[in-house]
Design a protein around this nucleic acid. Sequence first.
RNA 1: UGGGGCGUGGCCAAGCGGUAAGGCAACGGGUUUUGGUCCCGUGAUCCCAGGUUCGAAUCCUGGCGCCCCAGCCA
Length: 556
Amino acid sequence: MPAREPGQDFIRDIVTSDLAGGRHKTVVTRFPPEPNGYLHIGHAKSICLNFGVASEFGGHCNLRFDDTNPAKEEQEYIDAIERDVRWLGFDWGDNLFHASDYFERLYEWAEVLIKAGKAYVDDQTHEEMRANRGTLTEPGRDSPFRGRSVDENLDLFRRMRAGEFPNGARVLRAKIDMAAGNINLRDPVMYRILHAPHPRTGTTWSIYPSYDYAHGQSDAIEGVTHSLCTLEFADHKPLYDWFIDNLPVPSKPHQYEFARLNLDYTILSKRVLTQLVRDGHVSGWDDPRMPTIAGIRRRGVPPEALRAFAASIGVARADSRVDYAMFEHPIRELLNKTASRRMAVLRPLKVVIENYPEGQVEELDAINNPEDEAAGSRKVTFGREIFIERDDFMEVPAKKFFRLAPGQEVRLRYAYFVKCTGVVKDASGEVTELRCTYDPETRGGNTPPDGRKVKATLHWVSAAGAVPAEVRLVNHLFANPNPDAGNFAAELNPNSLEVLTGCMLEAAAVASNEAAPMQFERQGYFVRDRDSTPGNPVFVRTVGLKDSFARAVAKG
RNA sequence: UGGGGCGUGGCCAAGCGGUAAGGCAACGGGUUUUGGUCCCGUGAUCCCAGGUUCGAAUCCUGGCGCCCCAGCCA
């Protein structure tokens, strides 16, 4: 057996040894979403695992829709899922399947079990079934219909298929063990009557297989070798194996479970996410605050960064909750190397440079990305009136505040040193304008001949070159790091979205219509949003820059 | 009280009987025309208690704690 590579996870260990031991010649995995909602970051973990393992070991991964419950599934979700998996960077080639592709075969196999005396039609009501299932500590009781003859079961099951009975009138159950400690083995339902049109099979079926009955057999039909799912399905594994062992399936897949993702400040529950959308707590499935792949994409996170995140959290069996910084880190790491820098003043404070000639305007060189020389440079226009960030000025500077204050000198990035000489206030005492002087010898932001140093460099935008825009600051959707999904509405962060209007951006920030991520210097990474209009460009903050000053201030 | 699973530094996570990787975060320090980046440095004896062994996070026994399961959802 080959030595284990450090950093590999237990799934890859199993695949490695299965291949080395000759149990399998190739590896086949599958990503099996139910099209009843949008994919979220937890699914991204699973997608990266399934497609990643397959490609690393030279196998392939199927995209299979687990479409066994037409009451909840919709075409919109099918389309969204395909789009999101592709965007994440994975390709299923020709391996696109649906559990519904196998409905006929699954039906035939159900008759196989009936004929073998291993499945029966139960007429009990929903309530009776529940009452007879027993509890966690008490065994269940056999259904009065458990002893039906094979012929009667066959007849009834065929009539269920023919649509002779109303919804819920009967079910087909596997005959296993009503006293099993594992409740999944207490004669689980294989088929229920459901007169509902299916997105793919239309009205041809009036019975639909359950997850337990459909999943393993679908894996077997597709030749899946390693069926990876989350921990809550561990209890289903004996049932998964029971069907495989009792049916003439073409291959014998094995199920392995790993811990699902939990992320601070987010809820990864399709039920809750659906509710957030339906109740209008967010603007849609792709609201940038949503943990959906669509939301994350719209927020400007590149797919490589999402994949790097998935790789960084690993795969294991221990329940865990991932620190939000783990999500932000790979985004910053990637964008730092790739995003063009631009200057944008989010909360403008006007500054008049008194000794700069009135009416004069000049172009200064600004580097696009100090981490990437090939990104080149651009021109930014400078003039007598500029805007700086309100937060970059304090009339009475706090300790360790190095930015602008009366009498204090700072550098304007790529421009000049300026010193604050005056403050203009309105009737209410609010600062509305600053008066400064500049030092012509510091052009380009260079240190002056006298070697004078300055402790801060500010970003700025000239009034002459500014383009007004709207900027949306996206924050945690939930205020609590570990929000209660059962009471999610009360957990919402009232400040999850800050919409800033009247922001001033340098022209280059809006020159391109494409949604390439940009760094607004000293602030964070932003992308142009699709809500932009010709007169009102809109940007969304992907993630802020680390801010050790803010941290120090917060600590006091 | 039945069945299944899990417990390694604040968080994630390696470790597979030979004397605790790595990443994130935090905190110091250096560089810096982004209080960004980058660079350097700082922290655990492995849930607890016994046992086996020359040697245990790794094996055994007994506790304790946490998670999942009683849908005709997946």
